[in-house]
Amino acid sequence: MLNALEVFTTVSVGVMVGVEFSVAFVINRILAALPDDSCQLGRAHGGRMLGAVMPVWYVSSLVLTALWAIAGWHRPGTGLVVTAAGLLVVSVVMSVLLLVPINNRSKTWTPENRPADWKEQGNRWDRYHYARVAVLVAAFAVLVSALV
C-alpha cells in the first residue's frame, strides 16, 4: 500500500510541476506574443481556470506527501519526504501571500476595465511564479530521490 501511495504522490506532484512549468515557460510566452487585448484576456481566462483547479492540487499534493511521510516514518528516505513536504508548504504560502492576490485581481480584468499597470502586475506575478516553480521542482526532485 505504501508503494502505491509513493507512486501516486510522485506522479501527482510531478504532473503539477509540469503544468506550472508549462505556464511559466510556454503558455505565458505564447500569450505575451499576442496583441495586448488577446494577451490580457488569455491571462485572465487562465487565471480563472487554473485558479479554480490549482489550490486543490497544491493542498492534495501536500496532504499526500504528509501521508507518505507518516506511513513510511521508519523507512529510509523519510527525511527527504518531510523535506519535500516542507517545500510544498513554502509553495502554498508563496501562492497565498504573493500570487493569489494578483491573480484574484487580474482574472476579472477585461480590455475595458484593466488598470494602466496591468502588464507590470502580470510581470510581478510571473517573477513570483518562477520562484514558486523552482520550489516545486526542488520538491519533486526530493520526492523522486526518496524513491531510490
Rank of each mutant, 00 (worst) to 15 (best):
L97F: 12
L31E: 05
V133K: 07
C39A: 15
E112I: 03
P55K: 01
E120L: 11
A4E: 08
P35Y: 08
S60E: 09
V63Y: 01
H74T: 12
L80A: 06
Q121K: 14
R114A: 13
V96D: 04
R48W: 06
R29F: 12
N103L: 12
V148Q: 06
I70Y: 10
G18A: 06
F140G: 06
S95Y: 14
S95Q: 12
L99I: 14
A116V: 13
S61T: 07
G18T: 11
N113C: 07
Q40E: 15
V135Y: 05
V17I: 04
V17W: 00
H45V: 12
T9H: 03
V19Q: 02
G51T: 02
G14T: 05
T108S: 12
R29G: 09
L34D: 10
I70W: 12
G47V: 04
A69H: 09
V56Y: 13
T110Q: 02
A66W: 14
V148K: 08
L62K: 01
K107G: 01
V89I: 15
G51D: 03
R114K: 13
L136D: 06
L67Q: 04
L2A: 10
R132S: 11
T108V: 05
N3G: 06
P35W: 09
V90Q: 00
S61V: 10
R127M: 14
V56D: 00
Y128M: 14
N103V: 05
T10F: 05
L50C: 00
A138N: 05
N104I: 02
S12M: 11
G47R: 05
P35I: 03
T10C: 12
